[in-house]
Design a protein around this nucleic acid. Structure first.
Lengths: 90, 90
DNA sequence: TGGGACTGGGGTAATTAGGGTC
DNA sequence: CATGTCCTAATTACCCCAGTCC
């Protein structure tokens, strides 16, 4: 499957994360995200990596204290247990 | 269709709920609200989820023209609205 | 070739995260 | 138990300019 050969521009990634394009550049400079440089020096990011970061936060942290009283919703939307939290963005 | 896939900053959510940004962070830390972390560690919230929490999704909501209508419903977070908000729930 | 729009780098202010306490 | 406020450290946002991409 296409893991995402699509390259996104800093502006695209910034819009996805709701941050400033400069911030995305800083992530690349910090090595937090893979970046492909163009001959001119501009950066390009892989959509697969960006999406992994967006959904990768799915910590699903469930400290099963047992005493919790969180009523489980009787309607699991997606069968995916720990699948993508988002059904699909634009 | 802007169901609200936009991401909001803690300050935005705090302003919407009229609470302190710190409180919003606690909600995210408690798992009561979905949160997306940026590579830098900052949190971003989905407007769809925030809006669902604000409107109450039309459940257990009565006509209360009183100015003070603080939803103390800390239980039913998301009833599977449009979907994106179904993170850790146990 | 010319142009518009975006990007990169540096620097500074604002916001956020985390812990501790009331 | 939940919320607001205190602190410090880290991250992010907006300013400038020049260069690059399409």
């Amino acid at each position: 499957m296409d893991t995402g050969d699509r390259l996104l521009t800093p502006g695209e990634v910034a819009a996805l994360f709701r941050v400033d394009p400069k911030t995305v550049t800083r992530w690349a400079a910090a090595g937090r995200i893979g970046s492909i440089r163009t001959p001119g020096g501009h950066r390009r990011f892989r959509e697969s990596e960006v999406r992994a970061l967006l959904e990768g936060e799915g910590v699903l942290d469930d400290l099963d204290d047992g005493a919790d009283n969180r009523p489980r919703n009787s309607g699991p939307p997606q069968g995916g247990t720990h699948g993508p939290t988002n059904a699909g963005l634009h």
